[in-house]
Design a protein around this nucleic acid. Structure first.
Lengths: 188, 188
DNA sequence: CGACACCTTGAAACCCCTCAACGACTGTGG
DNA sequence: CCACAGTCGTTGAGGGGTTTCAAGGTGTCG
């Protein structure tokens, strides 16, 4: 995330188990961008030069690395569209759908929902909104029987309705399933 | 940019002369994301497999490629912060400062300003605002004697004031000047 | 039981949007 | 040369989505 002078915070992206973090810190330092943990985390540190070495290697590892980087860019792009042009309700739906999709890939979610340690303030800072408004949008999503978010659990009731609302495009996250596992292995 | 069902448009990024475009199209297809030209363009097409080959090669070309990709991500991140948490005025200032900075690197701008073929509608679609509001923010920037934008020219009057207003962080674009030229050469 | 973090709700204010109209400039064809 | 259309810029008034301010509610933990 990034902090601004007035104290407001913009969360850029949520890194889930198995995700790479800071793959471009050594290349383009983005001033003021930091990371924090929300849960207990097991992090594997990979040295910059090793990183470079992997990227140059001929194996599928290099491919997975490049893929992970491209994927993160795609996620951030969608996030940008959510904040810029989607309504608060649609943006929220999009974010929660995306998190569910990504968590499912690492077996931390199923079709019905997922465990979600985010507070409404986190969602607000991710979407450029206020926690108060997030609260109202969550209530609205509950009222239309699309989704409930209570006590750290997101529960999907009508995924189709959410997908339509958010204009969610599935499919840019899940392909190349084999490589994903390779990338995860690289961290271990 | 990306088009939504209600007809609104979100511009993700502006590609300037010398910039790579779609370096991850072959890896992660982001559905609905397209590109359009605003000016006459000279584009060099580089094949996917050649791309792959370059990335694996030991030279500085591979490094430049990776750097360009990381740089684009950094730009989009800043853009996201602008839309999410900066005021309309600050976001606009940030965007114009960034474009000026980037254009200066390819010798298409100097300290006083740059040629800018963007309409107010383009700026609006980039910042998630309305052209009407962009107009008023431009007037405000003019009133505070920071910047004028008339007839396709951006003219900086008080860059310091703009930098303060936008909390603009210089420095994540300009380093590694040598490699930039290498990347440009790759397109030729 | 109090402290704390988080959630919830209401009312007023504000930023930005929508709608609408007009003005400036450019190119086109008569 | 002028009428015309078209795009873009400009301005005003009113409305809506979101914020701010303020207060209370719920759950958990010491």
């Amino acid at each position: 995330y990034q902090l601004l002078a007035d104290g407001s915070r913009q969360i850029i992206n949520f890194h889930l188990p198995g995700d790479l973090l800071g793959s471009n810190f050594g290349v383009v330092p983005v001033a003021g961008t930091v990371a924090a943990t929300l849960t207990d985390c097991l992090v594997g540190r990979v040295d910059g030069s090793l990183f470079e070495q992997i990227r140059r290697s001929p194996g599928r590892l290099a491919e997975a690395l490049h893929w992970a980087s491209a994927r993160e860019k795609a996620i951030i792009q969608q996030h940008l569209v959510s904040i810029g042009r989607r309504s608060a309700l649609a943006g929220l739906a999009h974010l929660l759908l995306e998190l569910g999709e990504r968590l499912k890939l690492v077996l931390l979610a199923d079709d019905s929902g997922f465990r979600c340690p985010l507070t409404q303030e986190h969602l607000a800072d991710a979407l450029g909104l206020t926690p108060i408004h997030i609260n109202r949008m969550l209530r609205e999503l509950r009222r239309m029987e699309a989704l409930t978010f209570r006590r750290g659990f997101v529960h999907f009731h009508d995924r189709d309705k959410l997908v339509r609302l958010a204009e969610y495009e599935t499919g840019c996250l899940e392909p190349l399933s084999g490589k994903r596992r390779v990338a995860a292995a690289a961290l271990a």
